[in-house]
Nucleic acid binder design. Structure first.
Lengths: 368, 368
DNA sequence: TTTAGCACTCTCGCATCGAGAGTGCCAACG
DNA sequence: CGTTGGCACTCTCGATGCGAGAGTGCTAAA
């Protein structure tokens, strides 16, 4: 049950199947992870016994720690420091040791209420999602708009503005709206100056709406030849708009809570948070995530070096897709130090993704 | 000529009118500022003479430095360190000592070319502006979309989508497009289920376009009573859309180059860049800037403690408005340490703001 | 199998110290 | 009289050394 909602991004660091721990080892590992996540200080045997009422002596804990270290689940910063979980240790913790801290009902209600206050189609919606994620997990959060993997024609409106410009407003089948201005000179060259008043535009829009519904860029292109001049000209523009929409996988990134990360002691040195800022500003990285998340839904956790990106050795991601299945896909998640409060982050990301799925499908109705 | 394009945000730290420097003092101050901006190391008399061929002995420079310090233009981190410009020193440098480093023609052409590649109405345009600013000045950059201070009705289209939803696509008179979904239940309650097909919507849109052109939210509201049911219902929604547009001063912030700031030695300690991140994420601060920039166009430079915000003692801003005069107003600029390459930043911000003005007015034509 | 004891190791904080950079002042010079 | 060289003085910075403290690993006993 844990494995279906969590997936590793690379097999390299997955847990060896033979890795079975004794009860004591499991208890100690759990305590070490939770203490270290809380305090950011390498944890020693003495303190652990004190704080977690383990009912055994420090010496016993020490030997358990040594075993866990031999298994690669804990590390030693140096001879005489406490233990710190390794990436593999976190992985094991996340997959089978952790007790998830679900959001309580009051939180859920409040979040739901906030979402009901803003328009689904506005960017405010995504900003809100980012703010909720960041606030609830005290990490940096990322949300990208939900987009169809292949843009399809939904509905077009052609608008003649009083200043003479002609506007194409295209509603994609995933509900997104894109617009583009028609070039005056090009327009006049193809159809002559006379035939582009609002009436003529309405006719053309009618033709396009009747013939292009649900078509992707290449299919629209194939129809162009059979259309009357004005409609054909607009259809060419529409092809461009669809192609542009296809070419962008992650068009915009909404982010919040960078300051949360800044406050973590591991990022006190400014240069350490460079990789995080880069992720948040460049969408390349998130784009790599899209296919992974699209394939299997649910929450994905990527811990430290499990990440292919070298710069992100000390960063963990907790991400989930959202959107309408087979229709539109967006990403949301949090990122912070590997020392992340997973028991909080995972349920929060999961809740938000299901909530947004739900809101989308109830608003859009049973959009074919 | 310098004073009309640069304005101080607060009079408190303005240069005393009686402050007249000898030629030597001016040369030394300029050299100190430029050396410190370059190296981030407090500059001593010896090195200054070596690097800037001042033609006098270190002792002479020392006495000039002492005079400048007495005038409040330089400071001493401690007894035995070199001199560092004070905020006032930077101010004087910016206003009368600096030789601006204009962008060369190749740069201008390249920038212009990049802008010609993207749609004016898309966010890509703003992202590009932010990227250019950040790249050219090696600071963090900020760009906000150009918005009318009061939203006015431009043109409306009502769209019946195949899935049954009804969409309001409103083009504001500043060229921005906003959209909202009509609530099905509310809609049926006011006009009955039958009268909302595309034909009926077209009629209503025609009525609205004929009566509401150029109207602001309160004026639209006054007309509602005289409209037929469907048009009246949509008009109410439009009032909401206009009011929402009015209520947001800075709706979105496009930013780039945070990593540039991160690389500056004064921000090596992570916590130092907190104020900068806050500006970039919260729009409150930028909103305060809007009225200042709107009143007098041109490039504004705010240096360190000239800024009312306490957290920004070590940060300088170089900002300019852009947009169509009396129509739409946006902000763009860079921010970095007070030790900023002003001779580069100021011309870049100025060029970009005039370029964007130009592009906007040529695209939008003579939009009354 | 668990526990207590103990020697050992390594970090961290603190104090010390000398080198180096830079200043301010003064007397001499053109 | 402005400029310059000389010189004593101050302060930071990095290296060094040292002791306290925390934590481990091992071993022998319960």
């Amino acid at each position: 049950m844990a494995s279906d909602r969590l997936a590793r991004s690379r097999g390299a660091t997955s847990i060896p199947p033979a890795l079975e721990l004794t009860d004591r080892q499991r208890t100690v590992l759990r305590a070490v992870v939770e203490d270290y996540v809380l305090t950011a200080v390498p944890v020693g045997s003495k303190g652990l016994v004190d704080r977690y009422r383990l009912g055994v002596s420090p010496a016993t804990v020490r030997s358990a720690m040594a075993e866990l270290e031999a298994l690669g689940l804990l590390t030693h910063p140096h001879t005489s420091a406490g233990r710190v979980p390794s990436d593999l240790g976190y992985r094991l913790y996340v997959e089978s040791l952790m007790r998830e801290a679900e959001l309580d009902t009051a939180d859920r209600l409040m979040i739901r209420h906030q979402f009901s206050q803003v328009q689904l189609t506005s960017n405010e919606w995504l900003r809100l999602a980012a703010a909720v994620l960041a606030g609830s997990t005290r990490s940096a959060s990322v949300v990208t708009p939900a987009r169809a993997r292949q843009a399809r024609f939904g509905h077009v409106q052609l608008v003649a503005l009083p200043d003479g410009t002609r506007l194409v407003v295209l509603v994609l089948s995933d509900g997104n709206v894109v617009q583009r201005r028609l070039d005056r000179i090009l327009l006049e060259r193809t159809v002559g100056a006379e035939g582009t008043d609002q009436a003529a535009l309405d006719v053309a829009a009618g033709v396009l709406n009747a013939t292009l519904a649900g078509q992707s860029a290449p299919l629209v292109r194939r129809r162009i030849a059979k259309l009357p001049p004005l409609a054909a000209h607009v259809a060419e523009v529409i092809v461009g708009m669809l192609e542009e929409a296809d070419s962008v996988v992650v068009e915009e990134v909404f982010t919040d809570g960078i300051v949360n990360v800044l406050e973590q002691p591991e990022f006190a040195e400014g240069s350490k948070l460079r990789p995080i800022l880069e992720i948040l500003q460049r969408s390349d990285f998130l784009e790599q995530l899209v296919p992974v998340l699209a394939r299997s839904g649910g929450v994905h956790v990527i811990i430290g070096r499990e990440n292919a990106n070298d710069a992100m050795h000390e960063v963990s991601l907790v991400f989930a897709p959202y959107g309408a299945p087979h229709q539109a896909l967006g990403l949301l998640g949090v990122l912070g130090p590997t020392r992340m409060p997973y028991p909080r982050a995972i349920p929060t990301v999961r809740y938000l993704s299901t909530l947004m799925n739900e809101l989308i499908s109830s608003h859009y109705g049973e959009l074919q």
